[in-house]
């Protein structure tokens, strides 16, 4: 138990700084896409793009919405997503926690922060999946073209009517994932270091 109340090792602490470095700027500079969706159709061979940031959606929204109305999908408008109003703040908050953990130099603070971050990530993924589901299921029954209900892909390829869709996490999500991964990595590193201390390696 005293593992949690201990201070960080030097490398561990550097990893905490790194996590803080990734997370803290999100609110101030939400520049990296967290998800991208690319749609191709015969007459859109260059593809239409939807790019999701922590605070908005950009890309060929107008075109995609115009096309979607044929099959009765809801308009995609950034204002519909309350998530954009707390997501950057939340991520920066987790960065702040990492920063505080580093400053007070206590493992338990970092551990709490990591747990909260994990819970938040799970919530956000399920939230995103729910959005996708509802876009493909809550179709206007009066639409000109009646599609069977569908769920756009969370990740990977799929076909929707005459469109091919590729859905991929953006660099933002990858960085966030790496920051999250620093948690277990730190533990792993510390465990190795601890076992090294118990059985100091002799020169061969």
């Amino acid at each position: 138990m005293h593992y949690l109340t201990d201070r960080f090792g030097a490398t561990e602490r550097r990893m905490i700084w790194l996590a803080a470095l990734v997370l803290l700027p999100v609110f101030f500079f939400p520049v990296l896409p967290i998800w991208t969706m690319k749609l191709w159709a015969p007459q859109y061979r260059e593809g239409l793009t939807l790019t999701i940031y922590t605070n908005t959606i950009k890309g060929d929204l107008q075109n995609i919405n115009t096309l979607n109305h044929y099959v009765g999908m809801h308009r995609i408008t950034p204002d519909d997503f309350k998530e954009f109003r707390y997501l950057p703040q939340a991520l920066t908050f987790f960065g702040l926690m990492a920063l505080i953990a580093g400053l007070v130099n206590r493992r338990w603070v970092a551990f709490l922060g990591w747990l909260a971050f994990s819970g938040f990530a799970i919530y956000m993924f399920s939230d995103y999946a729910r959005w996708l589901w509802s876009y493909g299921h809550d179709l206007d029954p009066r639409a000109a073209i009646k599609l069977p209900e569908f769920t756009p892909p969370l990740i990977g390829f799929s076909r929707m009517a005459n469109f091919k869709v590729l859905s991929m996490p953006g660099p933002g999500t990858v960085l966030l994932g790496l920051a999250w991964l620093l948690g277990p990595l730190a533990i792993l590193y510390e465990m190795r270091a601890a076992s090294g201390r118990r059985r100091p390696r002799r020169a061969a």
Partner: peptide
């Protein structure tokens, strides 16, 4: 690990820009 992860980020970024799955002209 870090190098691999960074490579992953770059690869994903590129993949999302691919005009890849279109047919020929």
């Amino acid at each position: 690990w870090i190098v691999l992860s960074l490579a992953g980020v770059v690869a994903l970024g590129l993949a999302s820009q691919l005009p890849g799955c279109t047919a020929s002209r």
